[in-house]
Amino acid sequence: MGHNIHFNEKTGKHSFFSVKQPAWHKLGKVVEDYPTSAEAIHYAGLDYEVIKSPLFTKCGDLSVGTNGLENTQTAIQVNSHFATMRTDTNKVFGIVGKDYGIVQNKDAFSFFDAIVKEEKGVKFETAGALGDGERVFITAKLADHILVGKDDLVEKYLFLTTSHDGSGSITAAFTPIRVVCQNTLNAAMNRKSNVVRIRHTSGAKERLQQAHKLMGLVTDTADKLGTVFNQWAKVKIKDKQVKRLIELAMAPNKDTLDRLYKGEYEHISTAFKNQCEEAFAYAMMGDTQLLPTTEGTLFGAYNAVTGYFQNVRNFKSEEDKTKSILLGGTAQMKGQKAFDLCVDFAKNGEGILKV
């Protein structure tokens, strides 16, 4: 699996840091103590500036003069667009419009600094840059956690990513992670979003500094998730219903869903059936699925889908995995579908999971 962590040729270091434990790619700096935002920026190699540089085009022709071929082209500045580039390496990231607002890496950390002022115990755990430094990510762990059963812990994280190439908004998300298997349990409740998105405009920095106010839903969401997960840990579900939930949650399109409902398995793709079998095997035999909170329970069924994408499925790169699980990609959508199916099962019983 590729990592795409930025390597700075000037410093000879990878732009990544983690606390106490090295990441799977074994790159970057490992520190023993949780850093301040200023230290995290330095450890992760994010202490560079990004600017908007003017773009130019040329008009005119090459002509033949007394001295031979002459260049009579004139350089004209393009006023509607600019190139974004980092000043330490002069690497051009992308082309953006004139209204695009640059959010420096240090400004991205201001989102967490604002939260720290109100909620003690926020700890920076990882940060880094991808590609040539055009995409930056930060994860911070909140002080408390969600307890499912007697000892199944779900830690609460905030994840933020931003880009410097015009490819996306600044995105900050509440991300619960089940400790025993590092399984990300992303789900929006009651049609609320666990995500804050800020466009790169002139006021982006100021809105980022205030974004913690919008993240007030984190405490409310975590409390509700804790109640839901503990309820699900007491709801029994049969193996055949778990398999059905996996199939319905992971169906790639309406046609597949229709065929599942009609029992037309011979017309369903082998690749999809293999995915479902792998997820079901994880549900039945994974070590973390054999705990009192997960074995034969609805909470375990939900973890079967989310855990498949987190711990079983292979992605082309860590960046692809992050996009899929955290940034509205396939894994997050399938996890949300599984969550919704579990909500329906807990409320109405067998329902559409009846086989």
Rank of each mutant, 00 (worst) to 15 (best):
G121Y: 11
H81V: 02
K52L: 06
E125Y: 14
N105V: 02
S63P: 05
Y43K: 02
I102L: 00
G65H: 10
I102S: 03
V78L: 03
M85A: 12
E49D: 14
V92I: 05
R86H: 09
D99W: 02
T66I: 08
N67K: 11
S110I: 04
D61C: 00
H42E: 15
F93Q: 05
K58D: 03
G65K: 11
K58R: 08
L55C: 09
P35Y: 04
K123P: 03
F124W: 03
N71H: 01
R86W: 05
A127G: 05
A75Q: 12
H42L: 08
G128K: 04
K98W: 02
T74A: 06
E118W: 07
E118R: 07
G60A: 05
I102D: 07
G45S: 02
Q104N: 05
E39F: 08
A114H: 06
T57S: 03
H42C: 09
S37A: 13
T126M: 09
K91S: 13
V92C: 02
S53N: 14
T84W: 12
D107F: 01
S110A: 08
T89I: 00
V64G: 07
F93G: 05
N105R: 01
I115C: 14
F111Y: 14
E39Q: 12
T72G: 11
D113E: 14
L130C: 04
